[in-house]
Simulated scan of single mutants.
Amino acid sequence: MMSADTTLMVMGEELLLVPERAIFWIQHQVLIVADVHLGKVGHFRKAGIAVPQQIGHEDLACLTRLINRLQPQKIWFLGDLFHSDMNADWQHFANWRRQYPDIMMQLVIGNHDIIKQQHYHDIDISTHHELVEGPFVMLHHPQNDDCLKERGKYVFCGHIHPGVTLVGKGRQSVTLPCFAFGERQAVLPSFGKFTGRVSMLHRQNDRVFGILKEKVFEV
């Protein structure tokens, strides 16, 4: 089944929200993802906790499908790309990255990106504290209102793994991953599947897009 993407205009730029929990900036051919948390499975397994190894590999397979479908020229990772210190998952990731030498990959350093940045540079991924392109700034941590006003650009970030809670008529509820677009800032869902999510408090004028397996829909 084809993915049901949603198109959104922000600051005059056309964005494609895809159910794989990523954004494709159409004019610049950039794929934007946050909080992949590769290596988290290896981190748990190294500690003796039985987690299926294929979980982490599925996230890279999902990235591969997005590359094949959208043909990005760049991929921006908004922090927490690799969850822990070096473990067995790194080599699998390095091999995956080398399959796409023509795609520029850039990482905004997150709080879990604790390995030496040279490891990223060795596989042709540049590292940054922020990325600025056109009307947008790419960060890892969400910014408060004062910081957003000072920047004067629209911020994209991750870190908090946002979710939206939907309540049914029978009081049953479900919390779905979501994209949360405020007046000056968008918070992306965690791309990695081996992560939790936090139900966010949204402001009245925010635009929130819930994510099902094959559909993005405005709440």
Rank of each mutant, 00 (worst) to 15 (best):
Q143V: 10
M138R: 11
V108Y: 14
R197T: 08
M138W: 13
N111E: 10
C178M: 11
L31W: 05
K40N: 11
T195Q: 05
V216L: 10
I32P: 02
R21D: 00
T6A: 13
H161G: 04
Q118R: 14
F156Y: 08
G42A: 05
V18Q: 13
H141C: 12
I125Q: 10
N144W: 11
H37P: 05
H43R: 05
I23C: 09
S126R: 13
H129K: 14
V208M: 08
D80S: 08
H92V: 14
L70E: 07
R197S: 10
H159Y: 07
D59Q: 02
V132I: 15
K46G: 03
M200S: 01
A180C: 10
G39Y: 09
L81D: 11
G168L: 12
Y100G: 00
W90D: 00
L16R: 15
Y100P: 02
I109C: 09
L201M: 13
I26H: 01
H121V: 10
M86F: 09
Q143K: 13
V36S: 05
C62V: 13
D59R: 00
D124S: 15
M105V: 04
Q71L: 10
V187H: 03
M104F: 04
Q53F: 06
V108S: 09
G56C: 02
W76T: 09
M9P: 00
P101W: 10
N95M: 03
M138I: 06
K116T: 09
K46F: 07
I67T: 13
L70W: 12
R69K: 13
E133S: 15
I32S: 13
P189Y: 06
L31E: 13
K74I: 01
I49M: 01
M86E: 03
H128D: 06
M86Q: 00
D206W: 15
R65S: 14
Q54D: 15
Q54W: 12
Q53I: 08
R69F: 02
A50W: 06
Q118F: 06
L63K: 01
D124K: 14
R65M: 09
I211P: 01
G152E: 07
D89Y: 02
S173K: 14
W76L: 15
H129V: 06
V108A: 06
R97S: 07
H43Q: 05
H121M: 10
T7F: 12
V10M: 07
R65C: 07
P177F: 12
D80F: 09
F136E: 12
A4P: 00
C147Y: 12
L15H: 11
D89C: 03
E150N: 07
G192A: 14
V108H: 15
W25I: 02
I67V: 15
F77I: 03
P142S: 07
A22L: 06
P189M: 06
L212E: 10
R98V: 05
R97T: 08
L31Y: 09
M1E: 01
A34C: 04
A22P: 00
V219H: 11
Q71W: 08
H112C: 14
H159M: 04
L107I: 02
M9S: 13
F209K: 04
F179Q: 02
E130L: 12
G192W: 13
H202S: 14
L70C: 09
L139V: 02
C62H: 07
N205F: 09
G79V: 01
D89N: 03
F136H: 14
H140R: 13
F82L: 01
R21L: 05
Q118I: 11
V208Y: 10
